[in-house]
Design a binder for these strands. Sequence first.
RNA 1: GUGGGCAUAGCUCAGUCUGGUUAGAGCGCCGGCUUGUGGUGCCGGAGGACGCGGGUUCAAGUCCCGUUGCCCACCCCA
Length: 462
Amino acid sequence: MTDEPTTPASGMRDFLPEQVARRNHVFDIIRDVYEGYGFEPLETPSMERLSTLLGKYGEDEKLIFRIMKRGQKLQRALDEDPSEDELADLALRYDLTVPLARIFAEHGNDFPRVFKRYQIGPVWRADRPQKGRYREFYQCDVDILGSESTLVEAEVISAAADALERLGFDDFRIHTNHRKLLDGMMEIAGIEQEMRSDALVAIDKLDKIGLKGVVDELDERGLSDDAVDTLMPMLDQGAEADSPPFDNQRTLQAIADQIEQTESGAHAVSDLESLFRVCEGSSAGRHLYFDPYLARGLSYYTGAIFEIRSDDFPGSLAAGGRYDDLVGMFTNQDVPACGFSLGVERIIDLMEERDMFDIDETPADVMVAVWDEDFAADSMAIARQMREAGLRADLYPDDDSGFGKQFGYADERDIPFVAIFAPDEKEAGCVAIRDMDSGEQTEVSREHAGEETARLILKARD
RNA sequence: GUGGGCAUAGCUCAGUCUGGUUAGAGCGCCGGCUUGUGGUGCCGGAGGACGCGGGUUCAAGUCCCGUUGCCCACCCCA
């Protein structure tokens, strides 16, 4: 006995078989939907060079899990009063988007002119854990590189909306805004460039701290009263009821007149108009909610931005947007890009809370019992016949237990049938198949035990 | 990085405020009733130096200080 901890490291989780089954169920549906849109799978390593990740995320960079240099390099670094970043040369990936930009910069010529990819995998953030927030969590990303059309925005949010609907969600909103719209507003309000990201953070909090809260926070962050007085009414023209049906076009028009005097504002209005129009034909359409207060923290977004929210969950279930300059940070070429990421952990948490899982978690279709040591080879042979007939067959893992114990084991694992081959059955040349639900036993021939059992089970399921 | 809450059996928790004989419950686990047959029932059993360290006291699971871990909130984010 030692006092070594047995819980996973902070913010990390173990998954028991039942949980894995549920998670896989969710991943399977999402993958199926994404592939249905023609997205191709792409995988990148869990670790990246630290320099690849630095400078892409803004403030959040401090949450990147750094990996220390090793051996002599570490010694050398230690010798010269190093900063945290000088001690590390690698890092766990912080999201799936920046690695995508890197791989596109490397392999761009190998991809089609417009490249649609999806990726499902874990990412790591050194955040303090909290409800719906983990240090290791899966993201399910779709991204389209190489097109400036708003059709691309429409595709990625539709894929996400379809996936959510397939998982059983209905009451979610896709909050939509545009970085350039916010830029235009801030320009009109005379907010200098270096204040703008601060302003965005405050604006983004509307749903949490309310209108007055936003005004106070803008004030605290050092914006002039003039700027705040100009900015807030513009934002507020966009305020509409946050339940469907949403009249996004009208909301946009209310803002457009003023905002179109700036170049970026005009660009944003035209983008959003086009997006709203295109989406009318998509599954995202009825969920789309133009929200001028949506800002988003990540610094790489350049155009439309999105966040999916449900009233039952604090924070967002999914997020994304256009990031036309990210690939350019790795190579000279300009590659327009837009992506969307489902926060599956939060989706799964919410599904657990709402008891939305309804899946068959049985680990096997049938368990083959073992009478004694002398019958063990026969039991193995029967299990093999069952598997060859396409059944998931489990073999009782011991040869000296009574049937009572063996049935208990099958019952505990929710295995619906038990196959029995003991002296009586051997005598009769049969295998007894016990229905664990009813207790009824049916005999199948020893020779064709596989197919006959498969038929029997199939029939019982109807 | 900041604030708050919690830590007692394998699990979920009572007991702590108002210190005092062998620390409880439910569930789970093991055995028996049931030597070719489970689930339900009845009977029995195992399992805890009360997170860790120190202090106060005749006496600490209970009060005080520290520490670690987890959870929740803030910041920020999927």
